[in-house]
């Protein structure tokens, strides 16, 4: 193979460029020109100034190195995190923050899953809620004030709508407030799938009692699960912390107990703002455990709570 383009560097370079651009054009430039690469859900809203400031902090701290923001359409993944990610959810994401590694859990459905106070407590000290977590603490965020001018410049660069008052209000806000606001809006464009209640109607009419009521083994198991799953929000003695007390005979802001199967349903399905349980309206904030706890486990927690209440 003498001569040819192997002795003509310019011809060689041009050929190499063309060869490189073929795959580039088909898989990258061409799709960019088509509508399928620019989908947007009607329910998707641009970030507010506070949310964008939070997203900037999420970028700055490199959260994307340990947390993904895309739920794959795989059965167990949807069970663990929630509805799989849709192309139209990310139209305002510059850049996308899907990530490539789950050292920590996926965050695509973290929005509105927990109350703000949960996030604050967790950022201050992840180990206070999950003792064996390897997430660094981000307590310094609560002492850092936002820079409204910088945030305004960012909103302008992205062309997101904002009001002067909104920028003004940022003066009072910390990095922590912003990051929490961002956490709460992630995935908000996709409606949470209504939990397929465990034959809700049937249960309601008949009010199934706890099959494990007063079972000492179940109570012990419930105590163990409570310490692991519930104590970080409802307190070690169930007397309330981020979440309400579970032993004060008040449920959803109304005095009086609930039947066993309503306990079950709240733990199983979680609550969202405006959801109704036995005629009482919830304000949301309780995640559902139907995919991570077995039915017997949930009944065990109910048994434990009953025993705790009786104390």
């Amino acid at each position: 193979m003498s001569g040819g383009i192997y002795s003509k560097p310019i011809a060689f370079a041009i050929t190499a460029t063309v060869v490189i651009l073929i795959g580039t054009s088909v898989t990258m430039f061409y799709p960019m020109m088509t509508v399928q690469m620019h989908p947007k859900l009607d329910s998707l809203k641009p970030f507010t100034a506070l949310e964008l400031a939070g997203r900037d902090i999420y970028q700055r701290e490199g959260c994307v190195n340990c947390h993904t923001q895309t739920v794959r359409p795989l059965k167990t993944e949807v069970m663990r995190y929630g509805e799989y990610s849709k192309a139209g959810e990310f139209a305002y994401d510059r850049p996308f923050l899907w990530g490539s590694k789950r050292t920590g859990p996926d965050l695509a459905r973290i929005g509105a899953k927990y109350p703000d106070a949960w996030h604050v407590k967790h950022f201050l000290s992840p180990q206070s809620m999950f003792p064996q977590s390897n997430m660094p603490a981000y307590a310094f965020l609560k002492d850092a004030r936002l820079d409204p001018e910088a945030v305004e410049a960012h909103m302008k660069a992205l062309g997101f709508p904002y009001s002067p008052g909104e920028i003004q209000a940022l003066k009072e806000k910390t990095d922590m407030d912003a990051l929490v606001a961002y956490m709460q809006v992630i995935g908000a464009a996709v409606k949470k799938t209504a939990a397929p209640a465990v034959a809700a109607g049937v249960i309601k009419e008949t009010h199934i009692p706890n099959p494990l009521a007063n079972d000492q083994k179940a109570i012990a198991r419930g105590a163990e699960l409570y310490a692991k799953e519930c104590a970080s929000c409802h307190g070690p003695d169930a007397k309330g912390d981020i979440g309400p007390s579970l032993v004060d005979d008040e449920f959803f802001y109304i005095k009086g107990d609930l039947p066993d199967d309503d306990y079950f349903e709240v733990i199983n399905n979680g609550t969202s703002e405006g959801s109704v349980e036995d005629g009482r309206t919830a304000r949301g904030g309780m995640p559902g455990y139907k995919d991570s706890l077995k039915k017997d486990d949930i009944w065990s927690i109910v048994a434990f709570l009953r025993s705790k209440k009786a104390e």
Binding site: M28, H38, A91
Partner: peptide, 15 residues
């Protein structure tokens, strides 16, 4: 500070 010229799915594909 800058924002990717490409958004969402497209941003992912270019990246």
């Amino acid at each position: 500070k800058s924002y990717h010229l490409f958004a969402g799915v497209n941003s992912a594909n270019v990246q």
